[in-house]
Design a protein around this nucleic acid. Structure first.
Length: 593
RNA sequence: GCCCGAGUAGCUCAGCUGGUCAGAGCAGGCGCCUUGUAAGCGUCAGGUCAUCGGUUCGAAUCCGAUCUCGGGCUCCA
């Protein structure tokens, strides 16, 4: 049955089976080791262990373990299924407390469902090794073999910090050597487009230790890219009827008491500062301040919807271990907007908003979206009918935007249902970017109101949304998506003009002037080093257009063009044509030259 | 925060079974070369080997602590 092995289900089976082999190898090498769970995951599997005497794995152990695994594979041990009553299962795994806990859980579930005392299954490979498991498995260990252990880590039992910390080993497993090699190659490719690596290679940003973890500085080129992103965003927001506001980075504790952040978000906030008898906090969100702008005077229904926009820098305390380049930082700018509207404007506003969000993401070259509609969780505050109204409006927006969306039942924040927009990047990874929330709490907490056409006071609805999410994070996602080769409109240097010899310098300058006159960003690199070297440097700096000018070009008003995405350089391109070509690539947000 | 791993020149790394081990390439400065599509040649300068403490006659190398970074757990933009 050719091809069968490559289905997702088949891979899960072989990964899960490989995890069993890992557990057997570890229990062979560390007699008395306890094994907890070992599920298949995307691209591989892991298994959690507790080693005797609190021993820990180190990366050097992986080779030994892998060696023992290969012996087990060579022995071609069968996976034999056994079924046991709960009592038998507890006896069989009496010295495996984690298995005991799982079996007890199965027993309780069976009881709760009234299906008797319950049955557990186990798979036996040999007299020495049997593992509690639902199955299924491959027929025998000999069917496995295309695997590699990748890393060791600590993980808490059942993901709970208060429970014992276990030793986890990650691995990857595939149906063939070719598939394994392809996967390892993919990992290398992903590493090459790591935004942290590109950030230093392209001189875009860094994280000075003197400033502190998770607090980046943007260099001139990174700053230029960021400015281009922000300028574009501002223009589009202006067209879409947003108004720009600015708010400070600090506020008294009073504000966050009213907003409720000190109640439910304190762990995510920087510690307070005392000044003149008052307590100040760096803001973790911009919404309370935007609300104060709304509340600065009485509002009429005639001025709604009111759309306030700000690149607002917020500070959130993140535990040191979770920081991750620009993807996870402690201080970042949200492209934050709060829309205040009347109840009957809500649905229309959400629909417009979502299509606006998608149009901006598309302008950045992201095409593959998936939305997640997160609905009311079990623990929630507010009026259930308002929840229903808001959720229905979000659903309508998702439907009218015509994008794929899944409903994440009960996944909403406790104060708001939301739509999260995920994008898929060039190598298929999914990133959460935009979020749209209908806030059911803040308007009440701040006692917001507007005067309606009936001349009485009403409570406005409030939509909270971030489009990039965070500018820093979006910047990183773009860098990884494009592997550093940004579209022409976002490239810090769009054209590098290279005179072949010094006596072409004047002509090169005039080419640069012609381009700059169109608002393009151009460098001229003098002929102090050989042409090949300068071309190489421009290519490594990911400049989309390299224009070489020499004797022939000087004579004919042409340039030699070496552009990104084309396989061979062109000669004798008329300067006017070249200029309009670059202008077009810039205007159309094209990646290619 | 917890577990694992790593910190040697601006960058990438070698040296790391303790004794010419402070090195290479790139980048940078200076000089030469005047170049037609991804590295021209020469030369110079650069490091308290993350920090602090310990073991030793002797530490980049072994041990401990701290800091920073990376991979996980948890959480999220």
């Amino acid at each position: 049955m050719p091809g069968y092995e490559t289905t997702a289900a088949a891979r899960e089976v072989l990964r899960h089976s490989t995890a069993h082999v890992l557990a057997q190898a570890v229990t062979d090498l560390w007699p008395g080791a306890r094994y907890a769970i070992g599920p298949p995951i995307e691209d591989g599997f892991y298994y959690d262990f507790e080693l005797p005497g609190g021993a820990r794995f180190s990366e050097d152990d992986l080779g030994r373990i892998e060696g023992r695994m290969r012996e087990i594979v060579a022995e071609d041990q069968p996976f034999v299924r056994e079924e046991h009553t709960i009592a038998e299962g507890l006896a069989l795994f009496a010295d495996q407390p984690y298995k005991v806990e799982i079996i007890e859980g199965v027993g309780e579930a069976a009881e709760a469902e009234g299906v008797g005392e319950g049955v557990v299954s186990a798979y036996r490979n040999s007299d020495r090794f049997v593992d509690l498991c639902r199955g299924p498995h491959v027929a025998s260990t000999g069917k496995l073999g295309h695997f590699k252990l990748t890393k060791v880590a600590a993980a808490y039992w059942r993901g709970d910090e208060r429970r014992p910390q276990l030793q986890r080993i990650y691995g990857t497993a595939w149906e063939s050597e070719g598939a394994l090699a392809a996967y390892l190659h993919r990992l290398e490719e992903a590493e090459k487009r790591d935004h942290r690596r590109l950030g230093s290679e392209l001189d875009l940003f860094h994280f000075p230790p003197e400033i502190g973890g998770g607090l980046p500085v943007f260099h001139p080129k990174g700053g230029l890219i960021r400015k281009l992103m922000e300028d574009f965003s501002r223009e589009e927001h202006a067209k879409a009827g947003y108004e720009f506001v600015y708010t400070p980075h600090l506020a008294k504790s009073t504000l966050f008491e009213i907003s409720g952040h000190l109640g439910w978000y304190k762990d995510g906030m920087y510690p307070p500062m005392e000044m003149e008898g008052a307590t100040y906090y760096p803001k973790p969100m911009n919404c309370p301040m935007h609300i104060l702008i709304y509340k600065s005077r009485q509002r009429s229904y005639r001025e709604l919807p009111l759309r306030l926009f700000e690149f607002g820098t917020v500070y959130r305390f993140e535990r040191s271990g979770v920081l991750n380049g620009l993807l996870r930082v402690r201080g970042f700018a949200q492209d934050d907007s709060h829309i205040f509207c009347t109840p009957d404007q809500l649905a229309g506003e959400l629909a417009d908003l979502l299509s606006f969000v998608l149009s901006i993401l598309r302008a950045f070259g992201l095409e593959d979206f998936e939305a997640e509609l997160a609905t009311r969780p079990e623990k929630f505050v507010g009026d259930p009918t308002e929840w229903d109204t808001a959720t229905a409006a979000l659903r309508e927006a998702a439907e009218s935007a015509g994008i794929d969306f899944v409903v994440a039942e009960g996944e909403g924040a406790f104060y708001a249902p939301k739509i999260d927009v995920h994008v898929k990047d060039a190598i298929g990874r999914r990133w959460q970017v935009s979020t749209l929330q209908v806030d059911l709490q803040m308007p009440q907490r701040f006692d917001m109101e507007f005067v309606g056409s009936d001349n009485t006071r009403h409570r406005p609805y409030m939509i909270h949304r971030a489009l990039f999410g965070s500018v820093e994070r979006f910047f990183a996602i773009l860098l990884e998506h494009y592997a550093g080769q940004l579209p022409v409109w976002l490239s810090p240097v769009q054209v590098s003009v290279l005179p072949v010899r010094s006596d072409h310098q004047l002509y090169a300058d005039s080419v640069a002037s012609a381009l700059r006159a169109q608002g393009l960003r151009v460098d001229v690199v003098p002929a102090d080093e050989q042409l090949g070297g300068r071309i190489r440097r421009a290519k490594m700096e990911k400049v989309p257009f390299v224009a070489v000018v020499g004797d022939e070009d000087l004579a004919n008003s042409t340039v030699g063009v070496n552009s990104v995405g084309s396989t061979r350089p062109e000669r004798g391109v008329a300067l006017v044509d070249f200029v309009s070509r670059v202008v077009e690539a810039d205007r159309s947000h094209s990646v290619k030259g």
